[in-house]
Design a protein around this nucleic acid. Structure first.
Lengths: 182, 182
DNA sequence: ACGGACATGTAATCGGTTACATGATTAC
DNA sequence: GTAATCATGTAACCGATTACATGTCCGT
């Protein structure tokens, strides 16, 4: 139920409409918790039903500005401090690694090379984002930077791992580059 | 649709029953792609309907031994080589980081310390697993080790990041330990 | 006048989780 | 005999994705 808390977290900063929230998701939260339009609107309705947020104002074009309620704030802080984050890693990319024996070593190495490249691109994307985000001074920026740093470290780690893994496959299959780390 | 391919991948090694597959999931694939009993049995039925696997034999207690078909193998290899792994990071833990401004710095630091600790534990878990897995010699072991190495690097990276982040929060909030990296 | 941005909603479908339900075989 | 393990299945529910649907306001 994290989307719920993501919305509460954003509304704790300032009252916003579903439309506003959606944009924030697109630019900043998308990297850690993507959400679709359908989802956001539906969850906001549910939050209002549960009285964790209120419709603070209505604007043109049916715009509804939601604000977090006292109970909502309590729930948010409870989630932040009391609820254990569950870390389920579910990686498409790693799953494939288990089955690389099903294709020939050359293809398997190509796969790892591809992953290294993708990670490199991701790293660049995060680097570009950092410059962009660093300008802001609000909480979202301060803590967003911590999260961004995670992204930078993650993509760097993954690139290095993929490069190492490619070497491992090469070595264990005896294909090419015999003067390896041995 | 990765569960489907996980099952195909396992059946490519050797024909197995749902029960067998489930055990393999528990001990080795759980770390990259957890699956429940319900899911495995249901997916096997669907795979049989789609003729990507066949019921190769029936045993006691209604046991059905599934084997991958030619089309199944084709599909598996296609998935391995042609289909882009999509990397959606969805992290409960990172989402919270965005909202740490909602609690006081002391609590925020405790949160990061907790994450560092959890990562350390994870790292140990992977280390223990490595010794255990290293004994096997089949493909699942060979490639499983690559995946395990990812886990080791990931948990190490996350621990370091969490420790760094705790320091950042301390620094930016002016709380304690003034003789920091500056 | 018109196009683009603003703004919200519904419905179908899918993959995953939890819980329930049942029964056969084997080892002791 | 009986407990543990083997073995499969169903149903309800939940969160997420995709697609569809509709309408309004603002700037030019």
């Amino acid at each position: 139920m994290s989307l719920r808390h993501a919305l509460l977290g954003l509304l704790a900063r300032e009252p916003s409409s579903g439309y506003d929230l959606l944009k924030i998701f697109e630019i900043s939260l998308a990297n850690v918790w993507p959400a679709t339009q359908s989802q956001v609107y539906a969850e906001l309705s549910r939050l209002a039903d549960a009285e964790l947020v209120t419709v603070a104002a209505e604007g043109p074009r049916g715009r509804k500005e939601y604000a977090i309620s006292e109970t909502g704030l309590v729930e948010l802080r409870h989630w932040l401090t009391e609820v254990e984050p569950r870390q389920i890693v579910r990686s498409d990319m790693l799953l494939r690694v288990f089955f690389l024996g099903q294709i020939d070593p050359e293809q398997a190495r190509a796969y790892m090379r591809q992953q290294a490249e993708t990670s490199r691109e991701q790293h660049e994307k995060y680097e570009a984002l950092t410059e962009f985000v660093a300008e802001g001074e609000d909480d979202l920026s301060v803590f967003g930077l911590l999260s961004l740093e995670w992204g930078l470290r993650f993509s760097a780690m993954q690139r290095e791992w993929a490069e190492w893994a490619e070497g491992e496959i090469a070595r264990s299959s005896g294909t090419d580059t015999p003067p390896a780390t041995r």
